[in-house]
Design a binder for these strands. Structure first.
Length: 560
RNA sequence: UGGCGGGUAGUGUAAUGGUAGCACCGCAGCUUUUGGAGCUGCUUGUCAAGGUUCGAAUCCUUGCCCGCCAGCCA
């Protein structure tokens, strides 16, 4: 590869070699083949970025294909969400959106060819019999008694199967390979099963449906895919993939396997995510706490951040668990550069500027983004009564605490130097409000006499502040380890209780009232927040935290 | 006494026989109109034992450890 900024991995190494050898006439064609039985999650993003990234960098093509060969769990809603998510990630399939179900006719014809060749037969064994005859890891299998049917018989039976003459499970079409093969998958695998089930696209047209191993290679072959990239658990399937394509003597793509993504503290299993949705633990697949693409998008993650994340984690064949902080870092890195700053107070403490004229108001200039001068400035209203963050005041300051304390002068960001003169407490001894004096000479936050303050704190004008709702959900749904649930325990028991969403009132500078849905902000020192694209209403955005506190995660990790 | 695939700092990933690098985490210093921002620096690694070689993370042998496979799921 000529460019060094492109990701390096073993798959690109294979492609470089293939290209050097002129394989497939130096054509590169990849695909992403999800089954529409759930929403896509961050793990899928890895595959999408890998496949579409290769097509992009090598000037090849990339297909989006729905592997909809099992009507039982597949739904149009999932198809729609997957299309939206892949598009959001910026993968471009141009006009090549395909469905395995579009190939059912061709697959059928190929199956007939295999039967004619004497390489496939109709089997009447029950599920239990098939299992029993398959043998085990240590013992070889036994031939099915139906294995010796003639091609003529098989042809006739297969036709009757597809016409719906037999009930579900009564017959299968099986490849005739080797019941003693050390690889269990090669012991006469099922190619077609009978399923009198409504398919989300083909309706009731079919009642025999192809199995993954039979269908997938054909789909790849039909689309002239050059590199069929899939996850590690399909490694043992490659022998079968190759066997079918060799027997059929059709275009033969190369299957390459890589390790799927595991994220620490994160559930990345469609089955489990489906339970969270169905059992009401979350509001839906796009709940901001979900690791689905719809979820992280709603939470405030950007396309760019997910793509950078995928580049960062790399591609290999080793099973590994990527630390969740790597994901968080990817969005933090971007938002630090792009998100406008705003002042906000989550835990208010009232501050009265005693020497500020009663009823006076003024507007001060605040920088929108110190990382990006082009973002300009905005006006922030100031008045006699303010709110500051409770944490920004300590009556008896610790050694390393440089913010507000009795007798101490600090800067109100973009406003004035103030000095704390009084602390007002209630009968319980709790600090209710703090009185300060301000220095009118320090307007804007700099002192003409050059005196320095050690702390700068953020604030909002009590009178002007916009009272909004913030949601402090913690990151995703967290477990100590994704696949490491104790024996016999439900994974729900290991969910991090801090994932639970907390809603609270907060005070924001008034300009945020008109924040558009999906806008992202850095609330000074409090973190990154986004105006929820789903729950926000015009004029009253609801803000959700995008990145959770690093400290929280440190605590969780220590406990775990 | 099955088959297949893997083991590189704490984590993840490069280096296809030629200086073991990068990112995240961690630590230290500096800096900042709030830092979880910025800058600079630092610690830590080739599963083990043999072998081939001038030279091995890389090739060979043996061992150890880990993952996947016994759906009419994908």
């Amino acid at each position: 590869m000529e460019s060094t900024d492109k990701p390096k991995n073993f798959i690109r190494g294979i492609i470089d070699r293939d290209l050097a050898e002129g394989k497939n006439k130096s054509r590169i064609h990849t695909r992403f083949p999800p089954e529409p039985n759930g929403y896509l999650h961050i793990g899928h993003a890895k595959s999408i970025c890998l496949n579409s990234g290769i097509a992009r960098d090598y000037k090849g093509k990339f297909n989006l294909r729905f592997d909809d060969t099992n009507p039982c769990a597949e739904e149009q809603e999932y198809v729609d969400s997957i299309i939206a998510d892949v598009k959001w990630l910026g993968a471009d399939w141009e006009d090549r959106l395909f469905y395995a179900s579009d190939y059912f006719e061709e697959m059928y014809a190929y199956a007939v060819r295999l039967i004619e060749k004497g390489k496939a037969y109709v089997c009447d064994q029950t599920l239990e019999e098939v299992r029993e005859y398959r043998g085990t890891i240590k013992e070889t299998g036994k031939d099915s008694p139906y294995r010796s049917r003639t091609p003529k018989e098989n042809l006739e039976l297969f036709e009757r199967m597809s016409k719906g003459e037999f009930p579900d499970g009564s017959k299968t079409l099986r490849a005739k390979i080797d019941m003693k093969h050390p690889n269990l998958l090669m012991r006469d695998p099922v190619m077609y099963r009978i399923l009198h089930e409504e398919h989300h696209r083909t309706g009731s047209k079919w009642c025999v449906y192809p199995m993954y191993d039979w269908a997938h290679g054909l789909e790849d072959s039909l689309e002239k895919i050059t590199h069929s990239i899939c996850t590690l658990e399909f490694e043992t399937h490659r022998a079968l993939y190759d066997w079918f394509l060799d027997e059929l003597e059709v275009f033969h793509p190369q299957q390459i396997e890589f390790a799927r993504l595991n994220l620490s503290h994160t559930v990345l299993s469609k089955r489990k995510l489906l339970r969270l949705v169905n059992e009401g633990y979350v509001s839906g697949w796009d709940d901001p706490r979900m690791p689905t693409l719809a979820g992280v998008r709603r939470r405030g993650y950007t396309t760019e951040s997910i793509r950078n994340f995928c580049d960062t984690i790399g591609v290999a064949k080793m099973n590994s668990i990527v630390d969740i902080v790597v994901l968080e870092n990817s969005i933090r890195e971007e938002l630090n550069k792009t998100a406008p700053r705003a002042m906000a107070v989550l835990e208010p403490l009232k501050v009265v500027i005693t020497n500020y004229p009663e009823g006076q108001e003024e507007e001060l200039d605040a920088i929108n983004n110190p990382e990006d001068t082009a973002a300009g400035t905005r006006k922030v209203p100031f008045s006699k009564e303010l709110y500051i963050e409770k944490d920004d005041f300590q009556e008896e300051p610790h050694k390393k605490f440089f913010r507000l304390a009795p007798g101490r002068e600090v800067r109100l960001r973009y406003a004035y130097f103030v000095t704390c003169t009084d602390v007002i407490k209630d009968e319980k001894g709790e600090v209710r409000e703090v009185h300060c004096t301000y220095d009118p000479e320090t307007r804007g936050g700099d002192s003409p006499d050059g005196r320095k303050v050690k702390g700068t704190i953020h604030w909002v004008s009590a009178k002007h502040a916009y009272e909004a709702e913030v949601r402090l959900y913690d990151h995703l749904f967290a477990e100590r380890n994704p696949n490491d649930v104790e024996e016999g325990k439900d994974f729900l028991e290991s969910l991090n209780p801090q994932s639970l969403e907390t809603r609270k009132k907060c005070y924001l500078e008034p300009g945020l009232k008109t924040a558009d849905k999906g806008n992202r902000y850095q609330f000074e020192r409090l973190g990154y927040f986004t105006a929820d694209p789903v729950d926000s209403k015009p004029g009253s955005p609801v803000f959700g935290r995008i990145v959770s506190l690093r400290d929280t995660w440190a605590k969780v990790s220590k406990k775990a």
